[in-house]
């Protein structure tokens, strides 16, 4: 039923675009249409619709709203870099007094967090705290204390290279037990091969030892790389949730 009504409102807003001769009303209708898509959580479509609104004049009331919703949609689809560049290009043209500014800067902080650029996130918090129209009850600077315990970025490439010594990449990602297991598997394959060769069983040692070692070793490297990505995602999600909780409900 709800989906049905969403579709009806999408069509009605588009009908206004089709029938109206007033450019301002057309823009309003497209903006509303984008907000229907936002309510439907179709953020790609939201962005698509917002892109149809051509506004050059920063004094247009729709200008800052478009900027915020655009950045929000890009943030929700995981295009943090794109969201940041939207905030950057539109932000310079919007007055610091404008009511949309705290929202824009908040999004900017969350985007920088997602990209592990904590120093820039912190300077954005300072900027946000300096705005005149933010909530007085919110102590923005208290947020800065959380950054002392911000998660460290685990470089997947580094994790992979560290795993040249089996298990070290996993340890780097904080999984000590898994790293130990990986080391043991590799070590046993190697020692089995070496022992067989030493005992005169050359083919057995070579074929079985090398095959197993190769599988365990490349497998371990891939695993460490994947682990780094997963750990990053998990950590930053938790950290951003902490920041959001403290921003939204002081």
């Amino acid at each position: 039923m709800q989906a049905h009504q969403y579709m009806a409102s999408l069509v009605e807003y588009e009908r206004i675009v089709f029938q109206s001769n007033d450019a301002g009303i057309k823009k309003q209708a497209i903006f509303k249409k984008a907000m229907v898509y936002k309510a439907m959580r179709s953020y790609e479509k939201t962005e698509e619709e917002l892109n149809r609104i051509g506004i050059r004049n920063p004094n247009d009331t729709l200008f800052p709203l478009k900027a915020y919703e655009m950045a929000f949609a890009q943030y929700m689809t995981g295009n943090y870099q794109a969201a940041l560049s939207t905030i950057e290009t539109y932000g310079v043209m919007i007055s610091g007094e404008h009511q949309v500014m705290p929202g824009l800067l908040t999004l900017k902080i969350l985007c920088y967090n997602q990209l592990f650029k904590f120093d820039r996130a912190e300077s954005t918090i300072h900027q946000l705290a300096g705005l005149s129209n933010t909530h007085d009850s919110l102590n923005y600077t208290s947020l800065l204390t959380y950054y002392e315990k911000a998660p460290h970025y685990k470089n997947p490439e580094t994790a992979k290279h560290l795993s040249i010594l089996p298990g070290l990449g996993q340890v780097y990602c904080g999984k000590v037990f898994e790293g130990g297991l990986s080391f043991l598997l590799n070590a046993s394959a190697l020692s089995f091969g070496a022992w067989e060769v030493y005992s005169g069983y050359y083919f057995t040692g070579y074929v079985v030892g090398v095959t197993l070692l190769q599988k365990f070793h490349t497998g371990g490297q891939h695993r460490a790389e994947l682990l780094a990505r997963q750990v990053n995602e998990k950590h930053i999600l938790k950290f951003n949730q902490l920041i959001i909780d403290n921003l939204v409900s002081p």
């Binding site: 069983y201 083919f203 057995t204 074929v207 095959t211």
Partner: peptide, 23 residues
């Protein structure tokens, strides 16, 4: 490769040894 392993174990360890049967 596996067949070489089996042949080696068959010749050196003997047909009734665990390794030979396993490989």
């Amino acid at each position: 490769g596996l067949s070489l392993v089996v042949i080696e174990n068959f010749n050196k360890r003997g047909p009734d040894k665990f390794e030979t049967i396993f490989f």
